[in-house]
Amino acid sequence: MDNSKDKIHVIIAARHILYRLGIKTILNVIGIEPELIEADSWDMIKSLQEKSDYEFVIISEEILPDPKLQHLESLKCSDENCSIMIINDGSSEEADYPCLSLDTENKKDIIERFQHFFFNNQSDEANSTTDKSVLSFREIDVLKAVATGASNKEIADMLFISINTVITHRKNITEKLGIKTIAGLTVYAIMNKFISPDEVTR
């Protein structure tokens, strides 16, 4: 199944590859599996944005040409639905944009910052447009597996994600639906025709 158009689209923009890899790792930790494009220059960001819509841009401050704020604005203007997060050294604050300071030492803080950036934005958007209880395609994959009786380990192997990511997805599914038990999730999955009753092996 091609889910790419339902995935969220993210640009990671930073000059150095190690930097970008680090951000990718964090996205994995918080359970986001976006359609992801890396950019290592300002021109590349601009050309990417022209080709397609990106909901999230994580941008390292060093990649912005001067005057930085003005360039940021231009990014925002070209696509209103785009959320931007800036990673900087903490010395300057680009007003109105979520920031992650590089001197954040605590891993937990960093992860929370990212979670806030992705999930809060998502729910704001959801509030205004669609139902909050709508699951993402990846969550539906996990839900299907849970409902047919797979363990976290089995789901992780099946979907090529870490067990932690499985747990995060499950937590989000339960929060969105208000359903905690496997039996309840199974009923939901069948009701919504994500799985057929014969697939339930219990």
Partner: peptide, 17 residues
């Protein structure tokens, strides 16, 4: 588990049926 199931049932009726 019993409490969770009952709460799930309520949500299934309220939100999803």
């Amino acid at each position: 588990n019993l409490e969770e199931k009952l709460s799930d049932l309520k949500n299934l009726l309220i939100k999803f049926l």
